[in-house]
Design a binder for these strands. Sequence first.
DNA 1: ATAATATATAATTATATATTTATATATCAA
DNA 2: TTGATATATAAATATATAATTATATATTAT
Lengths: 109, 109
Amino acid sequence: MPAITVEPGTELKSKLFRGFSDGSRLSILEILVEGDATVGEIVERTGLSQPNVSNHLRCLSECGLALSRRDGRHVHYRASDSRVHEIIQLAEELLADSAKGIYECTRYE
Amino acid sequence: MPAITVEPGTELKSKLFRGFSDGSRLSILEILVEGDATVGEIVERTGLSQPNVSNHLRCLSECGLALSRRDGRHVHYRASDSRVHEIIQLAEELLADSAKGIYECTRYE
DNA sequence: ATAATATATAATTATATATTTATATATCAA
DNA sequence: TTGATATATAAATATATAATTATATATTAT
């Protein structure tokens, strides 16, 4: 009877990574780690629809990866923590070095 | 005519994060960053089915997050790069500090 | 060569998730 | 207060992905 010994917290951690694991959300995060941006600016820079961006931003906010403040009718978002940037940078390095084969990965599109 | 100015490489990067964004795969990666493990050991320690583990390991190998070597009828896997561990550790820190709200995130289960 | 063990594969099924669509709310300007 | 602008929400739809199931391959021992 083999015990299931998955480290506690793994589910939460994988959920955190889901914030980075969608192309749309990651492109939003990459804008947010550069600094402040309004929803409209994000819509413009990503080419995503406004409701889609809002849905993703809510997700990122609830998860604690982004923070928001209202300024008149605009709402500004930014990355919550410098480690958001660090994680993305580490991924870039990995991609450049070890993970070059990723575009061949057939498991997901 | 707003140009779509998503940074090149974002799609590949988000794909890389998908390696970490599934609970089963992350629990496998957490075993692999500790060191060598055979498929059977991973099956035992995670409680996942053997084909499921093999499918995930193929995914992780193709993406360059894991390396394998055959030793008789066993195949040993390990993390490909120390940055795999670093990324997981950063996520742990983020989770402890900024991303506490993640279990409330309604966007995904 | 045959059986046993270890792992891989691939089609199917089940499920999770992204995106759109339509609409609602909030703020400002006139 | 009415209209315009900015953002949010939520249901519906479309799509992607995980897990299972059944089977195949590879290695070793007898």
